[in-house]
Nucleic acid binder design. Structure first.
Lengths: 195, 195
DNA sequence: CGCGACGTTGATTTGCCTCAACGATTGTGG
DNA sequence: CCACAATCGTTGAGGCAAATCAACGTCGCG
């Protein structure tokens, strides 16, 4: 079995252990895909047609505003799930981009296969429920930070929460994620070196 | 059957229709509860022990920072679900408050009953998966707004998205939700009257 | 009636942005 | 393999968005 599938099955097993039949089904319906740096997993206007598990590498999800400025909504590194739920479920054109920041390998399942998987193996309803609940908690904490903390506090919490990400991702991208300019992030970092 | 349960069952049926056995089970495990204005459904330090469906009324979920200031994370009116997922699943003390802003009626299920419901009736894994996915989409859009739009734009989008909420909730509370001061919200509103 | 929550206004301050400029690094095509 | 472009991080001057602080009128409610 391709080693990629091992990391996916490990991810599922963290919540409710799969039977060997279910593991087999996972290998059947998920397919491997590779992305080059700057390759697009999703572009504005496309309809998001698959649920994606990142095996290795790193992606950013962002929207582009009317001034052409990018705003990073989330990052996804290995062992993470990423997709545009709104586009996926409503089957409408996405307003978002998902772009590889490193050469990356993913496993994808398409819409119809996922619906059939839910019906054939109820455990996946449960596993995907828990996956999205975990992501929901992260979003809720992030919302609380953005409405209550200064940019400086938010940057420190980001570094504390994702120390490995901070080393892999350019500060420009982190600034976009925090909702501040790269210049201002640079000033925050300088200020903290002196202390 | 208590009319409260009708609105809950309608909510479930919107996604995947319940059988009469499942409807019966819902009536068995969910219990009605009433809250006065300013009554607490959850307080900091409590462990969140139930998943709550709002039948009527309105709640705010908020955190209190080190300066004693409240920050509204979300509102929940009738036909909405509310809970602190982090506290509920990790069974740890919550950092949040959930407080009734109007006299309110809810239906609640406690932790163990929910776990049993998931196991006995797989459809609830699916329904609750979809419920949380919808809430996830809302959070994602909100994050995008907070990192990309000005306070004025965010206020207008809030009013457009929730015109009925804007009439029921004091501006002080909306300001807290938007992450701005009541004074500044007042100035935004004044400016738009003139135009 | 009197108190507390609410909404408003103005003066001042501050956090963060814009714009411009500059080296250092990375990447890429010839 | 080099040359050149693009990306990245940094710095400073100036400006704007939003916070702070203080004051005041209104309203609903106990």
């Amino acid at each position: 079995m391709d080693i990629s599938y091992t990391s996916l099955i490990d991810n599922f097993n963290r919540y409710f252990k799969l039977t060997s039949a279910e593991e087999q089904e996972v290998c059947n319906v998920f397919y491997v895909r590779h992305y080059k740096r700057r390759g697009f997993l999703l572009q504005e206007g496309d309809t998001c047609k698959h649920y994606t598990f990142v095996v290795s590498g790193c992606f950013k999800m962002y929207a582009v505003d009317q001034n052409g400025k990018e705003h990073n909504i989330q990052f996804a590194v290995e062992d993470n799930w990423i997709m545009d739920f709104q586009s996926f479920y409503e089957e409408t054109p996405s307003k978002l981009y998902i772009e590889a920041m490193e050469p990356s390998t993913v496993l994808q399942i398409n819409h119809n296969d996922l619906l059939q998987l839910y019906t054939a193996h109820h455990k996946f309803d449960r596993n995907f429920r828990i996956i999205i609940e975990q992501k929901y908690i992260q979003f809720q904490n992030r919302i609380l930070e953005t409405i209550s903390a200064t940019a400086e506090e938010r940057y420190h919490r980001f570094v504390d929460a994702y120390p490995n990400l901070q080393q892999r991702i350019p500060n420009t991208q982190i600034a976009s994620y925090l909702g501040i300019t790269p210049e201002f992030l640079s000033k925050i970092r300088k200020k903290n070196l002196r202390q």
